[in-house]
């Protein structure tokens, strides 16, 4: 029936409109839902969401050891050449040559925070940090070496 369909149309439309208005009305009355961060004011108490990507860092433990094997998987995964891994050969106690990372060079100015390098890393050596105040006076400061000087690979990471 035409008329029944017509009326159904109207009631359906009103219902769906009211659903939308209930949502916005809920937000209007519940101010604790507001997600805006008043950034420079709350700099000390700022809480960033867990998934926020600020920059790539390499985690080191207390005895200055990292988990990077120098496999260059991250370098290959990077879409715009942000990472350059310089490798060297360590001599193990048994006299074998072993590939290790010498310098993990990271160009922050080229990075798009796409997270591909972190996903590519087989040993979870690098991760995304939440720092985001990156501005510096010299562009050269944006090129960083991620492995700390004198750091070694953690025991047992292959």
């Amino acid at each position: 029936m035409f008329l029944v369909d017509y009326l159904k149309d109207i009631t359906g439309a009103i219902k769906s409109l009211l659903t939308g208005m209930r949502r916005t009305g809920y937000y209007f009355t519940h101010h604790k839902e507001i997600i805006t961060q008043q950034y420079p004011d709350n700099r000390d108490t700022l809480k960033l969401p867990e998934r926020f990507r600020g920059e790539v860092v390499m985690s080191h433990n207390e005895s200055n050891e990292h988990r990077c094997t120098g496999c260059t998987a991250c370098e290959l995964a990077c879409p715009n050449g942000t990472i350059k891994v310089v490798t060297k050969f360590d001599i193990s106690p048994e006299g074998k040559k072993k590939k290790a990372v010498d310098k993990f060079i990271y160009h922050l100015e080229l990075c798009t925070m796409c997270n591909l390098c972190i996903e590519a890393c087989p040993t979870d050596a690098i991760r995304m940090a939440q720092s985001f105040e990156h501005s510096v006076y010299d562009r050269a400061e944006l090129t960083k070496v991620l492995n700390k000087p004198g750091s070694k690979i953690e025991e047992g990471v292959e």
């Binding site: 916005t24 937000y27 209007f28 101010h31 507001i34 997600i35 805006t36 008043q38």
Partner: peptide, 10 residues
């Protein structure tokens, strides 16, 4: 103000 509060802004 109304638009901000409805869009979970300040």
């Amino acid at each position: 103000k109304v638009s901000a509060w409805m869009q979970i802004r300040l």
